Amino acid sequence: MTQISAADAELKKSSAMAGVAGTKTWQVSVQPNAELAAHFLNINPPQGPGEATIAPRPDGRFDVFYLS
């Protein structure tokens, strides 16, 4: 999985959120640390309860699973 910059992550999330309203699918983003993973989830619009989870990877990065 390719790591992307915070700016690219914001653009990707904004583009995904602009899709068809009411139809959400699980997406994944790999973030380099826990702080950036949390930041990603709080990008407007922030994820709500049950819409995201963060899982540590063996290489120290974090998988961020979110609905969009």
Rank of each mutant, 00 (worst) to 15 (best):
D8E: 13
N44S: 12
V30F: 05
I54N: 03
N33T: 11
F40H: 14
G48Q: 15
S5D: 00
V20A: 08
S14F: 08
H39N: 03
T2C: 00
T2Y: 10
K12L: 11
N44M: 08
A37H: 05
N42C: 13
Q31A: 15
Q47W: 02
A38W: 08
R57Y: 08
L41M: 11
E51N: 06
S14H: 11
K12E: 14
L67K: 09
V64T: 09
E35G: 12
A7G: 14
V30N: 10
D63I: 07
A38R: 08
L41V: 13
A37Y: 01
Q27R: 09
A18T: 02
V20N: 06
T25W: 04
Y66E: 05
H39S: 10
I43Y: 15
V30A: 03
V64L: 03
F62V: 07
V30S: 04
T25N: 06
A55Y: 02
S15L: 12
K24Q: 08
G22L: 03
S14V: 11
F40S: 09
A18P: 01
D8C: 01
P45I: 15
V28H: 06
P49H: 07
V28P: 00
V64I: 01
G50H: 04
Q31F: 01
A38N: 07
S15Q: 11
L11Q: 13
S14Q: 12
N33Y: 10
A52Y: 15
S14T: 14
P58C: 01
G48F: 10
H39L: 12
N33K: 03
H39A: 07
A6D: 15
A38V: 07
N42G: 11
A21H: 04
K12C: 10
P46M: 05
A9I: 06
T23F: 10
S14Y: 05
E35D: 13
F40R: 05
S15T: 15
K13R: 11
L11T: 14
G60V: 07
V20P: 01
A18D: 05
S5N: 06
E51M: 06
V20H: 04
N33G: 05
A34W: 02
T23C: 04
G60R: 00
T23I: 13
M1N: 00
